[in-house]
């Protein structure tokens, strides 16, 4: 073959080749760099925190009566607190978020819809500490109420709404037009069409939004600092008394130097990340399954 020596198909210059190789290497390097923290963090948490998770007491007991020198104890009080606050948050945020998404997709035209959409974006960017301060100004500063779990939930609602709106919206937009039009053609009123056809089709998107939203709010710490003081004992009343949550359980002891307390910090962190990752993995799984169904 004459190719290697020919002039027409002469290989490109070495410097171009080199630049291309360097760029390729850089892209792979970026990917590796991005993976390092995730692996490192998970490794740290498992190495330092897995110990206590094997003990059934971790899942059933609180920290009541346990001091920094005592080994073990449980995280039940914090887990239940985190779940309760997240549940109440979802109960408020889901109807608002789904409603907003339906409005934007099914009814939203013109100025108001643009304003709503813009505000949802703004809400995405509101720092959690600002949301917490707002609820503080309202709940405590204005109504003179106490720092309780419900106030935390209210602040979390602000953070959860945009997640739900966006993920619901995405799914609603995938509902085929002709499905809607078929229903309209049959003389079904608009709200009935939405209830009976659009919502069930977009169901997986809504579920994904809820799960991703829950994952986000469960990991939030700032609203807890401002509005939800930590307690070592179990409290399931959102309207009275201090209530534990996993982030505040971590925060409480993070400056401790004694090993039993340090161990608990890492175990609580591992518990929290497990909770959050399971939720967000499930959420994405549901969205994957749902979108496969609609795309066919």
């Amino acid at each position: 073959m004459a190719t290697a020596t020919s002039t027409t198909l002469a290989p490109i210059s070495d410097s171009r080749k080199l630049r291309n190789h360097v760029a390729t290497f850089a892209m792979y390097a970026c990917f590796v760099i991005a993976m390092i923290p995730l692996v490192w963090i998970i490794w740290t948490l498992v190495a330092k925190g897995a110990g206590l998770l094997g003990d059934p007491h971790w899942w059933t007991n609180s920290q009541r009566g346990i001091t920094s020198r005592i080994q073990g104890g449980g995280a039940y009080h914090a887990i239940i607190g985190t779940l309760l606050m997240a549940l109440v948050t979802a109960l408020i945020a889901v109807p608002l978020g789904v409603g907003t998404a339906i409005y934007l997709v099914e009814y939203g035209r013109g100025r108001i819809a643009r304003a709503v959409s813009f505000m949802v974006d703004v809400l995405t960017g509101v720092p959690s500490i600002v949301a917490a301060l707002f609820i503080y100004a309202l709940w405590i500063g204005t109504f003179g109420l106490h720092r309780v779990g419900f106030a935390v939930s209210l602040a979390l609602v602000l953070l959860m709404i945009p997640v739900i709106v966006r993920s619901t919206e995405e799914m609603l937009r995938l509902v085929p037009r002709d499905l809607r039009e078929a229903a309209f053609a049959l003389g079904v009123p608009r709200w009935k069409t939405i209830m009976s056809i659009v919502l069930p089709t977009a169901f997986s998107g809504i579920v994904t939004g809820i799960m991703l939203g829950l994952a986000r709010v469960m990991g939030e710490t700032a609203p807890l600092l401002i509005l939800g003081p930590y307690a070592k004992a179990i409290n399931t009343n959102l309207f009275s008394g201090n209530m534990a949550a996993l982030p505040t359980m971590i925060n409480q002891d993070r400056v401790e130097a004694l090993k039993p307390a340090v161990d608990r910090v890492w175990s609580a962190a591992l518990t929290l990340i497990l909770l959050v990752m399971v939720l967000s993995l499930l959420g994405r799984l549901v969205s994957r399954l749902g979108s496969v169904k609609t795309s066919r």
């Binding site: 073959m1 004459a2 190719t3 290697a4 020919s6 027409t8 198909l9 002469a10 490109i12």
Partner: peptide, 14 residues
């Protein structure tokens, strides 16, 4: 002409 575009060592970019 006489060069095989798909011969080994020929760069698609070229």
């Amino acid at each position: 002409d006489d060069e095989d575009l798909y011969a080994e060592g020929v760069d698609p970019v070229a």
